[in-house]
């Protein structure tokens, strides 16, 4: 009993140094540093989002973080409404392949259209909120 609890204590003590940062935490770390990263599979070369331990395409555990281009196209769009306020919820297809949910901002929510080219930035949707990947339309100057 004593031995067991000692070894348990040792394990506990070792944990911080050996803590394995999983893909979810790593993604959030990148976001907090202001960058949007995707994973790419070393085996099948496909990009992966959301972040995972294994490739959902081929099953490989060998995934490498790469910076996202930020370029995407709106796949579908909607305008949730409540109490007189409205905002945009969209699905965008990233240039690298994966699809993600986001908000397209800096444009009226109902003016977001399917097929619209958009570009990513890191922002928040409320004061003091967690950093998120948001998108805005690519203006004539950007493209």
């Amino acid at each position: 009993m004593t031995n067991q609890s000692q070894s348990h204590d040792q394990e506990q003590a070792k944990q911080p140094a050996q803590m394995d940062v999983g893909p979810e935490k790593k993604f959030r770390q990148y976001l907090s540093e202001g960058s949007f990263h995707l994973q790419r599979c070393d085996q099948c070369r496909q990009h992966v989002f959301y972040p995972r331990l294994l490739c959902p395409h081929c099953g490989s555990m060998q995934l490498t973080w790469v910076p996202a281009s930020g370029r995407a196209t709106v796949y579908s769009t909607s305008v949730p409404r409540s109490g007189g306020s409205s905002y945009n919820i969209a699905l965008v297809d990233l240039e690298e392949g994966p699809r993600m949910m986001t908000r397209v901002v800096d444009v009226a929510p109902e003016d977001v259209t399917i097929g619209m080219p958009v570009t990513a930035f890191i922002g928040t949707i409320e004061p003091n909120g967690e950093p998120l990947v948001l998108f805005r339309p690519i203006s004539g100057d950007d493209s």
């Binding site: 979810e24 919820i89 949910m101």
Partner: peptide, 18 residues
């Protein structure tokens, strides 16, 4: 995860997108 943080109006938001 990776959806809720954008505050979609669940569950109808998914169906609105479709």
């Amino acid at each position: 995860p990776y959806e809720d943080e954008y505050r979609p109006k669940a569950p109808m938001n998914a169906y609105a997108l479709a």
